[in-house]
Computed example of a mutant assay.
Amino acid sequence: MKAITIEEFGHPDVLKLSDVPDPLVRPADLLVRVYAAGVNRADLTHRTGGYGRPDFGDSPIIGLEIAGEVIEKGNAVVGFEVGDRVMGVVGGGAYAELARIDYRMAMPIPAQLDYVHAAAIPEVFVTAHEALMHLARLKPGDSVLIHAAAGGVGSAAVQLAYATGATVYATTDGSKLSRVEHLGADVAIDYKNSDFAEVIASKTDGRGVDVIIDFVGEPYFARNLASLANGGRLIQVGILGGGGKVALELEHILYRHLQIIGTVMKSRTQPEKHEMIKRFREHWLERFEGGGSLEPVVDSTFPLSRAADAHHRMESSENVGKIILTMQPADLL
């Protein structure tokens, strides 16, 4: 099969289209003919050596989410059959014509969705649900600040928060404000020209928000804490602005009853990942059906052979929503 391989870590041009052996199907696996695969920030970390080895996860092939058709299944698989359209999260191996996926990490593709839009769902919406609903315990009437709201997870989080009935504040580039508002943000903040902490203080009369979902890290940390209401929860999903060291006054955590929670799907155990998929599927999957309130946001598509261009697009931070790789002719998508 054709797949993207990495012989050395580095710039996007290290991504090469190669012939590699088909994946071996284990008892709990589905073998999927991949028609579309999502590009994620974790893929950039993989490509540049941030995980320390090329085979971090279940495959030396890059990529974490797929959409395609089941062509074979292991003898322990329950609930899926050959010919089913599925989407889901893999432990590596998505940038390929064939991929294996633990059936407990797979979900049926809603009938009206094509493969491209299905591939824009699993990683980002599952991560957004885990951060907002499971960890932050967001509920109707709460207020939430979502950073990097035009990105993959950010755009999913805005939609889930809006669908939950929360008041949604969101930071993004000024050119993307209207797109973020369309997704459900009540207040979209141009992070380059406004201090989000000042905007939150003004809009909430100094109270702050109940939840913050942050992908940036150290540069935002102090202002994030200042923007939380008493009892507020900061969910740290990424560190795009750098990890670094942060300083905090423990009295603020103690007396304001604040919580700081970190989450990364890739480093979780397989049983934990199964539960994450299950929670999302039970809570939201039907909302992608015809007339539902959720929509996967696709920024652009690239053929598998142009994976390097897809990575350049993500590194530019110009995208709104997901960047998708396609493996088959357009009439199949």
Rank of each mutant, 00 (worst) to 15 (best):
K16T: 08
G141K: 11
R233Y: 05
G152Q: 02
R33S: 10
G321D: 04
Y51C: 03
G141H: 06
E251P: 02
K278S: 04
K2I: 04
A128E: 04
D29E: 10
G52W: 04
G152H: 07
V126F: 06
M327T: 14
V209W: 05
N230L: 05
D19V: 11
A150I: 03
A229D: 14
R233W: 08
I261D: 01
L294T: 11
L177R: 02
S175E: 14
G321T: 01
R256W: 08
E69V: 15
V298F: 08
Y95K: 00
F302L: 07
Y255E: 01
P60A: 09
M1C: 12
P303R: 01
Y255W: 14
G151L: 05
L44F: 03
P12D: 06
S267A: 14
A136M: 09
R33D: 13
A76D: 12
L248H: 09
D29P: 02
L64V: 10
A185Y: 02
I61Q: 05
E289F: 05
G141V: 14
A28R: 13
G141C: 09
G49P: 00
K2A: 01
T45H: 03
G292K: 02
L258D: 05
K245N: 15
G241Y: 11
Y115K: 06
V158L: 08
V86F: 04
V14M: 00
E272W: 14
D205P: 03
V297I: 15
T167G: 01
S18Y: 09
D195T: 12
D190P: 13
L333A: 03
V70Y: 05
E181M: 14
A149K: 04
S175M: 12
V20W: 02
M133H: 15
Q236S: 14
L325M: 12
V89F: 10
Y115S: 05
K16F: 00
K16E: 08
D102S: 09
V82N: 02
A111G: 02
T48Q: 03
P54V: 08
G291M: 06
F125L: 06
I62Q: 00
L228S: 08
V180Q: 07
L258M: 13
E249Q: 12
V187C: 02
E97T: 15
A229P: 13
T301Y: 09
E282R: 13
D84W: 10
L44C: 04
H46T: 00
A188F: 15
P54G: 00
N319E: 12
K16P: 01
I260D: 01
Q259G: 13
V246P: 09
R281S: 15
L258E: 12
W284M: 08
A308T: 06
S18F: 08
S59M: 01
A166F: 07
D195M: 07
K278V: 06
Q236R: 10
L113W: 07
I200G: 07
R233A: 12
M105Y: 05
G50Y: 07
